[in-house]
Amino acid sequence: MIAVHDVTARRGDAVALDGVSLTVDDGEFLLLVGPNGSGKTTLVRQFNALLEPDEGTVEVDGVDAHADPVAARTSVGMVFQHPRDQFVAATVGADVAFGPENLGLDRSEIDRRVDDALGAVGLADERETPIASLSGGEQARVAIAGALAMDPDHLVLDEPLTGLDLAARRSVVERLRALHADGTSVIVVTHDLRDLTELADRVVALVDGEVVRDGSPDTVLDDLDTLGVRDPRH
């Protein structure tokens, strides 16, 4: 479980998060929505200690994320908005192996994790393929595989569908559905609910660094305009 307790985060004089409290249960599929600059990315980067709160605490599976950032980053996989920013190797297999290698695992365990992660995103045969030769949708799936190879209990995806064509969107959504079905909790940061509402257990809306809605997808559908979110019904 991820538990955020009264977290405040500032960027200079601006308040990015203002006393946010939130829990994400194991196996939950949560959509985090809100207009640009509402603090969504700042919030999820607290989950694996990439950012430190000015006030409050973040616990991952009962452990303070900042006291043990490696444990938090192992438990919370993160997929960034622009997949290209997170690639650190030229080929698919080398990039997916990067995280497990950093954990100091045996080569056989690293290979197993890379195979499993690539299989989970439907790229099992692309291990030796240069990332640059892949389409945008395939690169997004490699980025997800890179996070999955850390064997996370929770997976955070920051705008995973942005810029993808219809086929790529469907492919990524299907992978998320399968991961959720396997028991991984999935947190998707987005301002486009198309394709995602039927998967979500819960929607949390942030505006100006505060949680303004927290409930089932149905409860926020009438307020989407004010939340800066694209209506999935249109």
């Binding site: 950032p69 993160m78 950093n102 954990l103 100091g104 996070a147």
Partner: peptide, 10 residues
């Protein structure tokens, strides 16, 4: 950092 960069990886 998100992928646990280490000075002594495998």
């Amino acid at each position: 950092r998100a992928r646990c960069f280490a000075w002594n990886p495998t």
